[in-house]
């Protein structure tokens, strides 16, 4: 995914948009990779949290089609470990919001099996719908 080195105006605009939405100074990330080591869900991601940060630094919009942004569960482990005080979980949320605000749901709530619906606590449904539907 990280291939381009030329930064276009469109790339810059995307970086600016995610920086505003997340409130994170994304350009301050120095790619130490601690977030990726700390992340308990990294094994289910297609790019690591550090790669996600780098991709946003480069303004590559394709990052919104990665699995990573949806696998992030906002557990804030990266948040407390980042040596630069950045918050990759907020960046992931901003990327999700970019998609969800286009009325694109990541999960179809009508496909949850009835058997599961009878067991799942409300806390699971409310949080899943907040994170994965727009």
């Amino acid at each position: 995914m990280i291939s381009k080195t030329e930064i276009t105006a469109k790339n810059e605009a995307f970086l600016r948009r995610i920086t505003e939405l997340s409130g994170v100074s994304i350009t301050r990330c120095e790619q130490c990779g601690i977030c990726s080591v700390a992340c308990p869900l990294v094994s289910g991601m297609d790019i690591s949290p550090a790669e996600m940060m780098r991709t946003v630094q480069l303004g590559q919009e394709e990052v919104t089609s990665t699995k990573t942004i949806w696998v992030c569960a906002s557990c804030f482990t990266c948040t407390v470990r980042c040596p630069r005080g950045l918050d990759p979980s907020k960046v992931a949320e901003a990327l999700r919001q970019i998609e969800l605000r286009k009325a694109i749901d990541y999960m179809d709530i009508s496909t949850i099996p009835a058997e599961e619906m009878r067991q799942l606590p409300q806390i699971a449904l409310v949080s899943a719908f907040r994170k994965l539907t727009g």
Binding site: I109, M117, R118, Q119, Q122, L125, V126, F129, R130, T133
Partner: peptide, 17 residues
Amino acid sequence: ESYAASTLLEHYPEIAR
């Protein structure tokens, strides 16, 4: 139907939104 909270959620899961 079962007289449980999950019945309402099962038929109308969007209330969790």
